[in-house]
Design a binder for these strands. Structure first.
Lengths: 208, 208
DNA sequence: GGGAAAAATCGACTGCGGTCAACTTTTATC
DNA sequence: GATAAAAGTTGACCGCAGTCGATTTTTCCC
């Protein structure tokens, strides 16, 4: 039942997204006005707001579409038996690449993702759940392989990796970690998280 | 040499901050207009902008003042020889309390702190450095006591704690961690980071 | 203390995000 | 196909963040 209405709606939404990507890329998010965007998309200003609640929602919708693609790719490919460390680095680095492709996009997206407005909470939680559906199976397998402690909740474990990912992105925005070093930095951090920050308990006795 | 000018400037700045705290608390950040704030402070609208570059800078300045106080307190008190885990939980929990006192304040502050605008980078880096000056001595002491591996850079170690703190705050905003459980959650995460996520290498052989 | 340069104050103005009531298009019903 | 209800579109309009040139206050120098 593809009614005229449905078809038009999809077309209009697509037109908005297309105009948004074009203009945001060309002149940046802040410098693009909704009125201009509407003109580019061939519709009225008000119409934009019947598809998206705020200007940054448009950006956000775009990023989320990208993320969904990315997750599908990842679930399709990444089930392999490579070490958890590599898997995690791969997953988060593909996200990192997406985020850092456009600095302004990325900042707004991360700000909203890490500390979302209350109005966006529901959508946000859905997204997170989708995330967990990607990660949990990988973590379970790793637990089976003995790469992860079994006495920890999966939610906590994802938390550790996600926290370090947030840190990396934050450090990238502040310039502490340049793009080229991001992967090494992330891998180091993840490895340290796996090994633990305190000295191994049973091993050789320290010389002091 | 406290010229009239200096005195007035300090007084005006204080008046703005005072008006901001009052109005933001009463009616929230978004609902308070700069014009109103200026009226409350007894000055013209334009003057506000010769003290702060943007509206949220006012908020941010307030939070930073609070943070400086907090850090001074912490450096004064916290050098004691209690376990690193407790020290870290204390430090980050006092920050957490400040952030979560006012939801809207906290969100904006965290968004700007974790993913700052390029214009704010310099100020941001100064702040971070001040942070390190508080944390590094504590970490060094912990290394001396054998609570922390010595083969890790202090910067990385602070990163681990800070990353988990970001995670906690993010989880609080999404409602996954209620205020009452925050401290336990943070302590758990920090302990896990110290112990490591992978099973201890030398200990008993698994039953499988 | 006079007078000019520098700093600070001000509010009218601009531009944009977001709203809304009037209007047009689509659907459902007979 | 006529018609009424529902859904979708629109641009004039509103409120506010941020700008800027005109004006006032402070400092500095003689």
């Amino acid at each position: 039942m593809t009614s005229i209405r449905e078809t038009k709606k999809r077309r209009t939404r697509a037109a908005i997204m297309q105009a948004a990507v074009k203009l945001f890329s060309e002149k940046g998010f802040e410098k693009t006005s909704i009125e201009e965007l509407a003109r580019e998309a061939g519709i009225g200003k008000g119409t934009v707001y019947s598809y998206f609640q705020t200007k940054s929602d448009i950006l956000h919708a775009f990023c989320e579409d990208e993320l969904v693609c990315l997750h599908q790719e990842l679930t399709a490919n990444a089930d392999k038996e490579i070490p958890l460390l590599r898997q995690m680095v791969n997953i988060y680095m593909s996200e990192f690449k997406m985020i850092t492709e456009n600095r302004e996009f990325g900042r707004l997206f991360m700000q909203q993702t890490a500390f979302p407005r209350d109005a966006d909470l529901e959508k946000h939680l859905e997204n997170e759940d989708q995330y967990f559906r990607v990660l949990f199976p990988l973590l379970e397998k790793a637990q089976e392989r003995g790469e992860l402690r079994r006495d920890l909740e999966l939610l906590h474990i994802t938390g550790h990796f996600y926290g370090l990912y947030l840190l990396l992105v934050s450090a990238w925005f502040t310039g502490r970690v340049p793009t080229e070093e991001a992967e090494i930095a992330l891998e180091t951090l993840f490895r340290q998280a796996l090994e633990g920050l305190q000295p191994p308990p049973a091993a050789g006795i320290s010389t002091t």
